[in-house]
């Protein structure tokens, strides 16, 4: 209970300090918020691009082409094996007759008619359970070793490209977040340094009266955390406003490609994570500053 009381007191003190300088608080929150909004917006953009890419390209599939001489027994065996494979989400059998019919409908009837017999093999179109390139590689190797399977066509190149692009994007966003997070730590460090200089007399007097270092430090920790959290809220508001502004034109652009797409902002968990991250950086900046500037004994 005492622990709660001392933190409640330090929290109230930090809020009072923030409220006593509304313009300074607003400006600091804006600086922190705008700095954080860039990586936050980058993260949101990546999530939306990933969703859009999945929507446009459909679910990636693996095609199994059987040998020309494969019979009903072979088709049955492959069907049985696919049913037992846990990594297979669904599959469908495309008979050689059905494949021929599809090609004829596609306008190749004259060409195929000249061949005399149906040159197309039985085939299976498999949808794996998951999208990781590793899974696709594993299934490719597995299917290639099955009897009567002539060729396995792995349509994973685009999956790999997408993953590579998203990975690159994530790395860029993380790098940006790291750099701007460092800037946030510096901003808080400097704010707390100025506060310590301003409150030097009060700190001196408190120490003379028996204040411990944690007693003096706590309000600064809370101040830094609250300033960071306020900056996080500004960043969220910036991202949300951007999403609202860019949503309609993005939807119009997607419609020209025949896709339905709506730009979405960060969800509840992402929003909380952004605020918590900002508060943590604020705390870190204040902790370093307090450690640096209160280490000098003032009395």
């Amino acid at each position: 209970m005492n622990w709660l009381n001392v933190h409640a007191r330090a929290f109230a003190q930090a809020v009072t300090r923030l409220a006593s300088q509304p313009l300074g608080t607003l400006l600091s929150a804006m600086v922190v918020g705008i700095a954080l909004s860039l990586p936050a917006a980058g993260f949101v953009l990546l999530e939306n691009v990933a969703t859009l890419a999945r929507g446009v390209s459909g679910t990636p599939e693996i095609s199994l082409f059987l040998e020309q001489g494969a019979g009903v027994d072979d088709v049955g065996e492959i069907t049985r094996r696919l049913q037992q494979e846990a990594a297979v989400a669904s599959f469908r059998h495309v008979s050689r007759e059905e494949a021929l019919l599809q090609l004829e409908r596609g306008g190749l009837g004259d060409v195929l008619g000249g061949l005399g017999s149906n040159p197309l093999p039985d085939a299976f179109v498999v949808t794996p359970r998951g999208e990781s390139p590793e899974l696709y590689e594993r299934l490719h190797a597995l299917f290639s070793n099955w009897p009567a399977v002539e060729h396995v066509q792995l349509d994973s190149a685009w999956v790999q490209r997408l993953h590579a692009l998203l990975g690159l994007g994530k790395s860029a966003v993380l790098l940006l977040a790291g750099l701007l997070g460092f800037a946030l730590v510096i901003v808080t460090f400097n704010t707390i340094r100025l506060q310590i200089l301003t409150l030097r007399h009060e700190i001196d007097v408190s120490r003379l009266l028996g204040a411990t270092d944690p007693f003096i430090r706590r309000p600064f920790y809370w101040f830094g955390s609250l300033q960071g959290a306020l900056g996080g809220l500004v960043a969220l508001a910036t991202v949300w406003l951007s999403v609202e502004a860019l949503g309609p034109p993005a939807a119009s652009l997607a419609a020209t490609y025949g896709a339905v797409f709506s730009l979405s902002g960060p969800g509840l968990h992402e929003a909380l994570a952004i605020i918590a991250f900002a508060a943590f950086l604020g705390w870190l900046g204040s902790a370093i500053s307090v450690r640096r500037h209160l280490a000098e004994r003032l009395v």
């Binding site: 007399h201 009060e202 028996g210 411990t212 270092d213």
Partner: peptide, 21 residues
Amino acid sequence: PTAIPYLRRSLGLVLQESRLL
């Protein structure tokens, strides 16, 4: 250093300047 605040709490200290806030 961590014990000094507790020593000061047991003393009443008045300095040359009032050192009020």
